[in-house]
Design a protein around this nucleic acid. Structure first.
Length: 686
DNA sequence: CTTAGGG
DNA sequence: CCCTAAG
């Protein structure tokens, strides 16, 4: 797996230069922006990879540690990079100059590591570091930057452990952690060496950066064309200071633990060209995000960090900065979504391709044969024996602003993975590059005989279709060991490519929980195999095969059960302070400028949209009008309610009179108001 | 995207 | 809070 940084075309984005926002009317909207086309990327690649690695690791023997030092392929696989480039479809628009239009994305690509053959069950247990995998190269880099990265890994461990359990006994958490840590060390060392090494390879050069982060996230291909930005990028990569969120007078730095992530999902300034679709996509995505299926993901609290980092920045700047990534991501999702909407199947370029694996350095060693590492054992009793070293995992795209903290990045990744896992994963069987759909066929019938070269046999993790009715998804909470209490349904996960999932018709029709799916996929398809997947040959060998079928467009009946995926956002009653801020803002801005109100008083409260504010105002007015006995929830000070009434009355008239505001009106409002004081602010702004 | 309103 | 029509 590779953690690379994908920059937008022209890479001009992250650091959105501060551009004072012009009056709305003058604001130019719909500026086309460049959008990385990750629509084709399959987010589940990572997932699969992780799981695969896990499985693989669990089977790897002591060779594990050795392998990590010697055979481990460089994190930055050329092949992967190349493929990556291919994935990057042309931007829909060319506006690389548009500030803030780009965002960085970190993507994971699987680089199958195929070491070994000697497996010691015992060691396997200990080494079952699913993470070594996905996390290894990627996280280790981060680790260098942020030691506590491990915590994230641990979460992953748990999750994976859980999953690994499906194929084979999952190592005890302890073991996981230990081996994870151990591997991290080794691998990092190794990788670092490799990166800094003289290796005349472009890769080596490109990655011989000092900053680990940069090291990890830069993609050679991209770096070349954006070398000029590199330095700045580096600088920005790690926020240096943290300013109080309350820096701005009237702004409230509401906490937003549950929906911090929203920051990364929410879209704000989007290309006009995408507007319609985006909205839809966003909505859908949000629905997905709010889906209860993601509840198991851990909470994220990075918002505060990023928020504080931007605290000093001008209002608009901040806003833009905060959302550039979101938009970016959204755009990506949009694309993915678009394809789906079109009734197409979107799959990672390498979704079922063996290329990424083939291109891996190790591949070269093994002869670049995807299945070279898989072992086929023909037993006397005509059993097909083989080991699966890893699953092909859909790519997972993650985008975070440069200003995001490493911690937030970690959390993002963690959450993404967790969520994906929580969403359910299934295993698909590919034979000769073709997906074997008929679960009832015997291996023999399918052609998977003991005589067959298992190189032709491949497995791929398939996301449990989110489009499927909830019932078929199973309860994620049971999948993940998320100890998190109630977590916000708004996780970015889906955004990370869930929509990118390869929707297979058959998947959509399947029912039953993940576990069942799992069994169906494996058991029924290869009941013989099942017997051998366990104990000593738990490892899953990545035998990715180009699956034309998978890449083909397949109609998706996703619209159907969509509604069932929708879940309301978590309710977040307004606190008195929030109400006060709202009232204050409305008094000054009126009731028809919610966006401004939001910006003015809730800039940092990402979970409060202007619509929310508008709605709140609506209820406040109502509340103010009803008797105190009828009011519910946290009592709002009468004083505030009076102001609400006054402001409401005032602005109602003001609006009606069309800019006719004057002293006379103020007086009128004053009269209407039961509380003359409430008019003060109004008068001030007149 | 924002507003404005109904649900 | 959600959803949408409108702008």
């Amino acid at each position: 797996m590779v953690l690379k940084k994908r920059l937008d075309y022209g890479f001009n984005g992250f650091r959105v230069p501060f551009v004072p926002r012009a009056p709305r009317s003058a604001r130019r909207r719909g500026i086309s922006r460049t959008v990385a086309e990750d629509g084709q990327a399959c987010a589940f690649e990572l997932l699969a990879s992780l799981a695969g690695k896990l499985l693989q690791e669990s089977a790897s023997s002591s060779a594990s540690s050795n392998a990590s030092e010697g055979n481990h392929q460089p994190a930055f696989d050329k092949g992967v990079v190349e493929q990556e480039r291919q994935d990057e479809v042309k931007p829909l628009e060319t506006d690389s100059i548009n500030p803030g239009s780009s965002a960085e994305s970190i993507l994971f690509s699987e680089v199958a590591s195929q070491n070994t053959s000697q497996k010691s069950l015992v060691q396997a247990e200990a080494d079952a570091v699913l993470e070594r995998t996905s996390v290894n190269n990627n996280f280790e880099c981060l680790e260098k930057v942020e030691p506590d990265l491990k915590s994230s890994v641990c979460k992953l461990e748990d999750t994976f452990g859980h999953y690994s359990g499906r194929l084979a006994p999952a190592p005890a958490p302890q073991d996981f952690r230990e081996s994870v840590n151990g591997n991290m060390k080794n691998e990092f060392r190794q990788q670092e060496a490799g990166n800094l090494g003289i290796g005349g390879s472009t890769l080596a050069k490109n990655y011989s950066l000092k900053d680990p982060l940069e090291l990890c996230v830069s993609s050679p291909a991209l770096v070349d064309s954006t070398s000029n930005v590199k330095s700045s990028l580096l600088r920005e990569a790690i926020p240096t200071k943290s300013i109080s969120r309350h820096g701005n007078d009237s702004k409230l730095g509401f906490r937003d633990d549950d929906e911090n992530f929203l920051r990364f999902n929410k879209l704000s300034t989007k290309s006009k060209a995408f507007r319609p679709t985006q909205q839809i996509a966003h909505r859908r995505i949000r629905k997905l995000l709010t889906s209860k299926y993601w509840k198991t993901a851990p909470k994220l609290k990075d918002c505060e960090l990023s928020r504080s980092d931007m605290g000093v920045k001008p209002l608009y700047h901040k806003r833009k900065t905060c959302h550039s990534f979101e938009r970016y991501q959204h755009d990506s999702n949009l694309k993915k979504r678009k394809l789906l909407d079109r009734g197409s199947v979107v799959t990672s370029d390498g979704g079922f391709s063996s290329e990424s694996v083939c291109n891996s350095p190790e591949k070269g060693k093994d002869g670049c044969n995807p299945g070279s590492s898989s072992e086929l054992h023909v037993s006397k009793d005509s059993h097909v024996k083989f080991s699966i070293k890893s699953f092909k995992i859909p790519e997972l795209y993650i985008e975070v602003p440069e200003t995001a903290t490493v911690g937030s990045l970690k959390r993002t990744i963690t959450e993404s993975v967790m969520a994906i896992l929580g969403g359910g994963v299934r295993v698909g069987v590919l034979f000769h590059g073709k997906k074997v759909r008929d679960d009832n066929r015997t291996l023999l019938q399918t052609g998977i005989s003991c005589k067959e070269n298992l190189d032709n046999l491949g497995f791929a993790l398939e996301p449990s279709s989110l489009q499927v009715s909830p019932i078929s998804v199973g309860d994620p909470s049971s999948q993940c060991e998320s100890s998190q209490a109630t977590r916000s349904p708004r996780t970015p996960v889906p955004d990370l490519g869930v929509s990118n999932v390869l929707h297979e018709t058959s998947l959509l029709t399947n029912t039953g929980n993940i576990v069942e799916h799992y069994h169906e996929s494996i058991s029924s398809q290869t009941d013989t195999i099942v017997d051998y997947i366990t104990p000593d040959s738990r490892a899953i060998v990545a035998v990715p095969t180009r699956n034309a079928e998978a890449l083909a467009m397949v109609p998706v009946a996703q619209k159907a059960r969509r509604s069932e995926l929708v879940q309301r956002r978590t309710r977040r009653p307004f606190s008195v302070s929030e109400v006060e801020a709202l009232v204050q803002a409305v008094e000054e801005l009126g009731t028809g400028r919610w966006r401004d109100v939001k910006l003015r008083a809730f800039e940092n409260a990402d979970h409060r949209t202007y619509v929310d504010l508008k709605d709140k105002w609506k209820t406040l007015v109502h509340t103010a009008r009803i008797s105190p006995q009828q009011r519910r929830g946290e009592p709002v000070p009468q004083e505030l309610l009076d102001r609400v009434l006054a402001a409401h009355a005032y602005w109602s008239q003001h609006q009606a009179k069309q800019q006719a505001g004057n002293l006379k009106m103020i007086r009128e409002a004053s009269v209407e108001s039961q509380n003359a004081e409430a008019i003060q602010p109004l008068a001030m702004i007149m």
